[in-house]
Design a protein around this nucleic acid. Structure first.
Lengths: 200, 200
DNA sequence: CCTTTTCTGTAGTGGTCGGTACATATTGAG
DNA sequence: CTCAATATGTACCGACCACTACAGAAAAGG
């Protein structure tokens, strides 16, 4: 098994580096030259390992969602209440979007607004991941309602879109340079609003 | 006066077309070839009239803010209360971001997430316009507080960032294809939250 | 050993990018 | 009319894009 010359680089490490680069610069503004330079891998090796720029991005985005975006997602699902879940989702995302030494903002939001419509593979990937996020939120609200938890609204779909939009807004502001403390203050306001709508 | 061969196209109309194109495709994904083709103007004439791609974008963004973004801005300032101002700001922006036959989303938000950091002129322009938006919101809240209007929070800066983020979230969702009615439902939720926080 | 398979480095491919040199055309000034 | 000034169309610039042809290197199977 494993005939032929062995690969001279760590595929997972290369994917991790590609993820960081796409996260930092966005999809369109990250060139193959940038990748080959930062990863120390010549382009033929890159193409042999990942296929194309868009396929590499999709794999990098998978890694982003599994490792980085995983924490907020898990926090939403694992919290005992929808309120605690949404609060944790927002706070974990703020931490993720403003991590010291890490790229700012959200890899997916940035790609959504910067990838050319002609790159259908990436556009479809991003659309799918957005639907998954909304579904996760919606089902969390449905479960909470079934458990008798008071919610800001009975319209779970609108709730899901509203709180997903909060995350997107945080991502845009983080990229604009808003400090972590400022983002957390608006998260506090969002949760104050939740309480005001549920305890009245 | 006005020596030399006269310009053979309407500069304002060309600027309007450029604005629509930048709005539709973003900054980076709108090429000079796209512009020359859609405007019917060869590139030397374009450069003679506007200087460079980034200068053309800044002029187009000025036009966007004056004509299109002007309505939401005026709505915020002109409303009798901060609450009515914020509600009008959000609803006017939803209308703007989902206008039939027009580009979706916000020209500025899209450019913020898609313009390469190397294009400092555009980056600085976008940063300035963001600060102006926040200032407009902040001073509206300050005026409301001085007039005795109850607000969701005494921290006017956080309020400004929160409601500006609402607009950005709406812009991202509009670009993702969210229908106008769905955006308006989340605006209703946002204003329900305002009322819950001010009337408790 | 030799062959097959796979990867690597060099050196490109055609295409598009933002921007421009240049000759020509069209105006007002004198 | 002549001249200076400005705009136009053609045709091009070097730089960069995503991507790849090709020859040689490094492994396993025989």
């Amino acid at each position: 098994m494993a005939r032929g010359r062995p690969r001279s680089f760590d595929r997972d490490a290369a994917l991790d580096g590609a993820m960081r680069l796409f996260w930092t610069r966005g999809y369109q503004d990250t060139s193959i030259s940038d990748l080959t330079e930062h990863l120390g891998i010549a382009s033929p090796s890159l193409y042999a390992a990942f296929g194309s720029k868009s396929a590499l991005f999709c794999e990098a985005a998978d890694l982003y969602q599994a490792r980085e975006g995983g924490r907020p997602g898990v926090a939403l699902a694992a919290a005992p209440t929808a309120r605690a879940g949404v609060a944790a989702l927002l706070r974990e995302n703020v931490a993720l979007f403003t991590r010291r030494g890490g790229p700012r903002g959200c890899l997916l939001t940035r790609a959504t607004l910067s990838c050319p419509p002609s790159d259908t593979a990436v556009v479809e990937y991003l659309d799918r991941s957005r639907r998954d996020r909304l579904t996760a939120l919606r089902s969390r609200f449905r479960a909470a309602a079934a458990a008798g938890e008071p919610l800001p609204s009975d319209d779970h779909d609108t709730l899901a879109q509203h709180y997903d939009a909060q995350v997107q807004g945080l991502a845009v502001r983080a990229l604009e340079g808003a400090p972590r403390a400022a983002l957390l203050r608006t998260v506090d306001l969002t949760m104050t609003a939740w309480d005001a709508m549920t305890t009245r």
